[in-house]
């Protein structure tokens, strides 16, 4: 998941760095406004925890392989979006400065794709779901859906950065996005499973640690509903519309044109008419592949979330009386 140096152009790295610096700076300021004296121990400890937890291999339930936590949504749910965003920036920095994981130039892009999208965007999705779905199931479903979306949105953002970095290259950006987001929709299922499990474990052991009313209320009240809706709309667009590029309604191109990156259109040769997906023995007509991948991603994600919710319901109900939960959380 870490972007190495040399994959994105330096201009894009700079732009992403500025955006990330803005977001992390804002988060630090928000933290100082709300929980000043707790900031350092809580944020630092969360960062250390995410770092350590990323080292733990989870056996993937469906395939005989291991996956690990990314943690942006988990951090945001436990310590709040602002502290979560800062914690992710800390984790990514330490991985870069201790192991050379992730490039120094690409640090901003990494923070943007994983930290900012994961914590701020993920928490936006989570709190929206929480508002319409109360009780422990809402918490778990919100966490799982937000995790899945944050991974897919992060990969879509990466595609956008990649496309802007190699504007003059002759590859097919829409196909690349389709491949990338499809792959990451699978990675996202793993992240959703892990985050959902951890949150449901926390709900059984220490429900007071998940979503303290004061914390999320402050954040939700502080920012207008409009902004949240906008963020979520952007996330959904990034996750779902980016692959919808096949029939000429290229979302990326549309975005690029809007921002007057007209050169993208001019320099890029038209997509091959008889495009074949390089899967052994399988070939598709133009455009079919994109629709397939998008619906595949959508179906996979939705069913995974549904499955997790049902599973966790059993897992949670056995140990936690839901009335007790309502009492501590006020619904």
């Amino acid at each position: 998941m870490h972007i190495a140096d040399g994959i994105l152009s330096n201009e894009v790295c700079l732009g992403a760095g500025l955006l990330a610096a803005g977001a992390v700076g804002l988060s630090l300021r928000k933290l100082n406004d709300t929980v000043s004296l707790r900031t350092v121990p809580l944020t630092g400890m969360m960062a250390a925890l995410i770092f350590a937890a990323q080292m733990v291999k989870f056996p993937l339930l469906v395939v005989p392989a291991y996956g690990h936590l990314l943690g942006g949504v988990l951090a945001a749910i436990v310590v709040g979006p602002w502290a979560g965003c800062v914690a992710m920036a800390l984790v990514l920095f330490l991985q870069m400065a201790l192991f050379a994981d992730g490039g120094w130039m690409a640090y901003g892009a990494n923070v943007l794709n994983m930290g900012v999208v994961g914590s701020l965007g993920g928490h936006a999705v989570y709190s929206l779901i929480r508002r319409h779905w109360s009780g422990p199931r809402g918490v778990i479903a919100g966490a799982a859906i937000a995790s899945w979306l944050s991974v897919v949105a992060g990969s879509a953002l990466f595609c956008l950065e990649f496309a802007l970095s190699h504007r003059h290259a002759e590859f097919n950006i829409s196909s690349l996005c389709a491949v990338m987001t499809t792959f990451h929709s699978l990675v996202g299922v793993g992240e959703a499973l892990i985050t959902g499990s951890l949150i449901s474990y926390l709900l059984t052991m220490r429900p007071d640690l998940v979503d303290l009313p004061g914390r999320s209320a402050g954040v939700v009240a502080g920012i207008s509903r409009l902004l949240w809706t906008g963020t979520i709309a952007a996330l959904v667009i990034a996750a779902f519309l980016a692959p919808f590029a096949a029939d000429g309604a290229d979302a990326l191109e549309a975005t690029a044109e809007k921002f007057e990156f007209a050169s993208l259109e001019k320099e890029r040769p038209a997509p091959l008419p008889d495009y074949e997906v390089p899967l052994p023995g399988v070939s598709y007509e133009t455009g079919v592949w994109h629709k397939v991948s998008v619906s595949l991603a959508g179906i996979l994600g939705t069913s995974a979330v549904l499955g997790i919710t049902l599973l966790m319901r059993r897992f949670t109900r056995s140990k936690l009386d839901s009335r007790e939960f309502e009492a501590t959380h006020g619904g």
Binding site: M46, L49, A53, V56
Partner: peptide, 14 residues
């Protein structure tokens, strides 16, 4: 088991 491990670490860390 792995969930428990990480979850317990999380609780202890907090």
């Amino acid at each position: 088991g792995t969930t428990q491990l990480v979850g317990m670490l999380l609780i202890r860390a907090l």
